[in-house]
Write a protein that binds this DNA or RNA. Structure first.
Length: 500
RNA sequence: GGGCCCGUAGCUCAGAUGGCAGAGCAACGCCCUUUUAAGGCGUGGGUCGAAGGUUCGAAACCUUCCGGGCUCACCA
């Protein structure tokens, strides 16, 4: 039944595809014909290289009268009979060139007229200033470096359609400067985080993304299969358990920036693959990570300022530490206590218009927190007081066994990170894993998970130093820094339904 | 998965109550040697997301499907 439907729709698509091409015919076909005519005239439309001398931005810093050689994509073309102005764009910006028939001769000029917006060209010539004051290259020669067969989005309104912007991100970053800047800022942010950690003698490592038993978080994993070993593997949901194996091996300060994969819902704050920073530091507890996360986030905040951006929230000042139970009491007006039973919690939830039900108490508390407290946590807030029983990889506080040595970072009403003192007692860890497994396998979604990661427990049995760990969601951090409304705006190629 | 909204030319968008599918940019032709959203004259371009239905007549109304956005739920 399914296959019949699929075949039908596949046929429809073939037909549609052909029609799409027909629709493009005008501009696409015309450009293809130009390409063919170039080839017949022995003009190479796709040369292998070009000896570009200067980026656009560099060329613009040169003086009037100096000779420059630049290259890029033609973004605009204004022809006035025997002369024309074009803007050429490379990764550093745009520069204008001016080409004149009586300067380059009729043959070259006519060739220039064949060149389309979107084509890559190289231009050399002297700089001059136009009547309207723009530094411009007076072309002595122009070379085609790459023919474009499809028209670019419109120059004034640019590319607006959200879906097309995500699916054809190359067009988005080409014509929408804001988008291009955002992703460059993302890159710089990650590189800044890296340098902050390296300065503190953390070393960057890479751990497996293909794991036999996905651990380090609770989430539905993606499943895959390795042919040679004929074994099922999972895409990691977190690198945590591998990074802590490195602590066992004596590497005291490690971090990883990389992709995690969670087979769950997609929303404005969730992409199935997302980038996490995880940091581990031996001989420290979660207090150390409070300091470190502040260093990282305010460091990034400073960089943003230096780059001329303004983060929507002050990331340097106003940091505070708050207890989750006090926060919940404050923002709901109902007293909450870590000792609350499931029943009591449900009753309070009911008063707050939160559906109670068969869920675990953690979920109920989390719902209350998400609805009433989270949106209020605008300036950076380190939230403590999480229950040990819902922090399976964290150590409990020596003062109160019920409470984990753990905090989460909230900024701009969003969870940005999570940190705790790491559980290094192999006996306790095994017990917790075993209990978790029983609970998990009761749910159909986790039926693939049939055993605990005893390899990890074995590592712990060799002895792991006391340590603290921190995880920061990079995508959400970037959202915060740029004020992006959706995680898709900060991921170059976000997950979309494949077009059939 | 539920609710609301969107899909019209390569791009950006108009098309009240059903009556011959439009504009700007881009393209093509002509004019134009300092323009910059260049300008002037002219031309071509559409299975109105898809399929059914209602109707004398559907881009518009109804149903289903496809894709997207927001939101709730699920979920860190």
């Amino acid at each position: 039944m399914i296959s019949v439907f699929k075949i039908k729709s596949a046929i429809k698509n073939k037909v549609k595809q052909r029609k799409m091409n027909d629709q493009n015919k005008d501009q696409f076909e015309i450009r293809k014909e130009k390409l063919e005519s170039f080839q017949s005239k022995n003009i190479e439309a796709y040369p292998n290289s070009y000896n570009k001398k200067l980026d656009a931005a560099e060329a613009l810093r040169k003086e009037e009268g100096e000779s420059v050689k630049v290259a890029g994509r033609i973004m605009s073309k204004r022809v006035m009979g025997g002369s024309a102005f074009c803007h050429v764009k490379d990764s550093t910006g745009k520069i204008q060139f001016y080409i004149r028939k009586n300067k380059v001769g009729p043959e070259k000029y006519n060739f220039f007229k064949e060149i389309d917006i979107g084509d890559f060209v190289g231009v050399k010539g002297e700089l001059f200033i136009t009547n309207t004051g723009e530094k411009t290259v007076l072309a002595e020669d122009m070379k085609l470096l790459g023919k474009s067969l499809r028209p670019l989005p419109e120059k004034w309104h640019k590319l607006q359609d959200t879906e097309t912007r995500y699916r054809k991100r190359y067009l988005d970053i080409l014509v929408n400067n804001d988008s291009s800047l955002l992703f460059k800022l993302r890159s710089r942010t990650i590189s800044r985080i890296r340098s902050i950690l390296e300065d503190k003698n953390f070393i960057e490592v890479e751990t497996p993304m293909l794991q036999p038993i996905p651990g380090g978080a609770v989430a539905r994993p993606f499943k895959t299969h390795h042919n040679t070993f004929d074994t099922d593997l999972f895409l990691r949901i977190a690198p945590e358990l591998y990074l802590k194996r490195l602590l066992v091996g004596g590497w005291d300060r490690v971090f990883e920036i990389g992709r995690n994969f969670r087979n769950e819902g997609i929303s404005t704050t969730h992409n199935p693959e997302f980038t996490m920073l995880e940091v581990y530091s031996a001989y420290t507890d979660y207090r150390f990570m409070m300091e470190l996360s502040r260093n990282i986030i305010s460091g990034v905040g400073e960089m943003i300022k230096e780059a001329g951006y303004e983060a929507s929230v002050d990331l340097t000042n106003g940091w505070q530490e708050k207890n989750i139970w006090e926060l919940m009491s404050k923002y709901t007006g109902i007293e909450f206590d870590p000792g609350d039973s499931f029943d009591e919690l449900n009753k309070k939830a009911d008063k707050l218009d939160i559906p109670p039900g068969k869920d675990s108490p953690e979920k109920v508390a989390d719902r209350i927190f998400s609805k009433y407290v989270e949106p209020e946590l605008i300036s950076p807030t380190l939230v403590t007081g999480y229950l040990s029983k819902f922090s399976p990889l964290a150590k409990s506080s020596p003062e109160d066994e019920r409470i984990a040595e753990r905090f989460e970072i909230f900024i701009g009403g969003q969870e940005i990170g999570n940190a705790y003192s790491e559980q290094n007692n192999p006996l306790i860890q095994r017990e917790i894993f075993t209990r978790q497994l029983k609970e998990k396998t009761a749910e159909p979604d986790f039926s693939d998970i049939t055993e605990i990661d005893s390899d990890y427990i074995e590592a712990l049995e060799y002895g792991m130093p006391p340590a603290s760990g921190l995880g920061i969601g990079i995508d959400r951090l970037i959202m915060l820094l740029t004020g992006a409304e959706s995680i898709r705006e900060v991921i170059l190629f976000p997950m979309l339904k494949p077009l059939r």
